[in-house]
Simulated scan of single mutants.
Amino acid sequence: MGANIDGPRPLRPDEFRDAMALAEHCFGYESGGLEARMPHCFDESRPDRHVIIKRDDEIVSHVVCVPTELRAGDVCVPCYGIAGVATDPDHRGNGYMTQLLEFCLRRAEEDGVPIVELEGDRVGYGRFGWENAGREYRFRITRRSFDAPEPVVNDGTDLVYPVRPGNADLESIERVHEAERYRITRDQDQYERLLGQRGLETLVYDGDRPAYLCHRGAEPTSVLEFGGSERGVATLLDRVLQDDEIMLYTHPHHPLVSLFVEVSTDWTLLSHRKLNVLDLPTVLEAYEPLLEDRWTTAVDGIGTSTTGGSVTLAIAADDRNPSSRETPVTIRFEDAGVHVERTDRKPDLVLDRRTMTHFLFGSPDACYEVKQTHPFLGTVLPLEYYFWQTETI
C-alpha cells in the first residue's frame, strides 16, 4: 500500500511546532533555537509563510518563504526570501525539496513578485534558476591593525551603551539605518525582531554624529550590521575589538569601506547571495532610477553629448518562461536619462535565466564580452542589492 502524501501546501497553525522540530533537527538547533536566532523568518504568528509536505501524517519536508523588499536608493523591488529548506534524512531522495521550491516559485509568480532570493549551494539550487549575485566585503580587523591609524579619542561627551529591544534607542537606529543606500525594507516589528535575536548585541554611539553596531559571538567576533558616522563606528569598533579580532561584513559601496581598508589586516570580496529573476521587465522597471543615476553620472563625467540609443533584453524560454510568455524589455538611454519599457521588439540580447542573473547582478566583469558589445550596459551594470548579516534568510 502506497504512502499517503499531503502537499506541498501552506502550513496550518497547529502544525507549526512539528515543522520547527523538523527544521531544528535538520539544522542542529535546540528546541526554539531557530526562532530565537532568526525570528524574522520563523514566526509562529505567520504560519502562512511556511510550506510543507506530509507523509503518512508526518511532516517530512519544509521551507519558509519570507516577503521582503530590496532597496537601492529610490529603487524598491518586491522579493521573496527562501529559508529553512529541510527534509527529514530518512525521506530524502523523493523529490520533496524540488516540489517545495517549485511551489514557492509559483507562489511568487502568482503574487507578482519578480525576484526570489536564498543562501545556499550554487550547484544544488542552480537547476531551479538561482545564481550567485551581489558582492560582500569581509574585513578582518585585529587590535594591532586597528591601532595603526589615529587612535579613537573619547572626550567624555559621547556615550556608548547597549540597546535593549523595545526602548527608544530603536528609533535612533531606525533613522540611521534608513539613510543606508542598499538595504531591505523594515517596519518597526522587524527592527525589534532583528535586534532582539539571540546572541546579538547592539551598541549605540550617542553623540553629535550618532552610530550603531550589531555584533555576535567570538573567535572571531562578527560585526553583522552597523551604520552612522565614521567617528561613531570607529569608536564602537574600538569597544568591541578589545583584545580579540573581529570579522566585519558590508557591501562594497558602503561609504565607510575606506575606513575598514585602513584598519584591517586583510579582506576578501565574495559573492553575496543568490537571486532568481522570474520577471525581467518588472525588475528592470524597478531599477530604472539606479540605471538613470549611473548613466547620467557617466554622461556628466564625459562632459560631451552622447548619441544615445536602446538595447532590448529577454530571458530565453524555459520551464518557468515558455516562449508564449516571453516579454522583451527595452532600455532607452540619452543625455537626459533612461527609460525602461516592455516591447514586442526582437531582443538584441537573449540569455538563459542564470546567465541573465549573473549578467545583471554579478561582478562588474560578468559577461565581459557582452558588455563590450553593448557599452551602455557595461556602464550601468551590475545592479546592486544587500542583505545585512543580521537579516540572513
Rank of each mutant, 00 (worst) to 15 (best):
C214E: 03
E391A: 11
T250Q: 06
T268L: 10
M1K: 11
F146D: 01
L194D: 00
W267M: 10
A83E: 01
L381D: 03
I59Q: 01
D266K: 08
W267G: 01
V233W: 01
W267K: 04
Q389S: 05
S363R: 15
L290T: 13
D6Q: 14
V152E: 09
S61T: 06
E285T: 12
S363F: 13
L291K: 07
D74L: 15
R273H: 03
D300V: 07
L159P: 00
H215L: 04
F128T: 02
D344V: 05
V338E: 00
D121S: 15
G308K: 10
S145D: 11
S229Q: 08
P210R: 13
G228D: 08
R320E: 11
P89W: 05
I53L: 08
E117A: 12
T87M: 06
R92L: 10
R193D: 02
Q99T: 06
P78I: 04
T68Y: 02
P210N: 13
D238S: 15
E24V: 07
F139Y: 15
G95Q: 11
N321V: 09
K346T: 12
L237T: 04
V261A: 03
D57P: 01
V123M: 11
D352N: 14
A234M: 13
R332T: 13
L291V: 11
L349D: 10
G126N: 10
F361V: 08
D352R: 12
D244P: 03
R332S: 14
G7Q: 08
E230L: 14
G32V: 08
R216E: 09
G199S: 12
D365S: 15
G2T: 14
E178K: 06
G207I: 07
D243S: 08
H25L: 11
S264P: 11
I315V: 15
M356K: 06
E119W: 13
E192R: 14
D56F: 06
P347N: 12
Y205P: 01
L275H: 11
N94C: 14
V299M: 05
S363T: 15
P13V: 08
F333H: 15
I59D: 00
I246H: 02
A36C: 03
Y249N: 02
G166K: 15
L195H: 12
V370R: 05
D208H: 15
V152N: 04
F16L: 00
Y386R: 03
L383A: 11
D266A: 09
E334N: 05
S61H: 05
E171G: 12
W130L: 07
F260E: 01
A72M: 05
T297P: 00
P114Q: 04
W267Y: 13
R209L: 14
D365W: 13
D56A: 08
N94A: 15
A86Y: 02
A317R: 02
D43F: 01
V257W: 04
A218T: 13
E119R: 09
T202H: 07
R216Q: 09
A36N: 07
E219A: 14
H254F: 09
G2F: 12
V85F: 04
R122H: 09
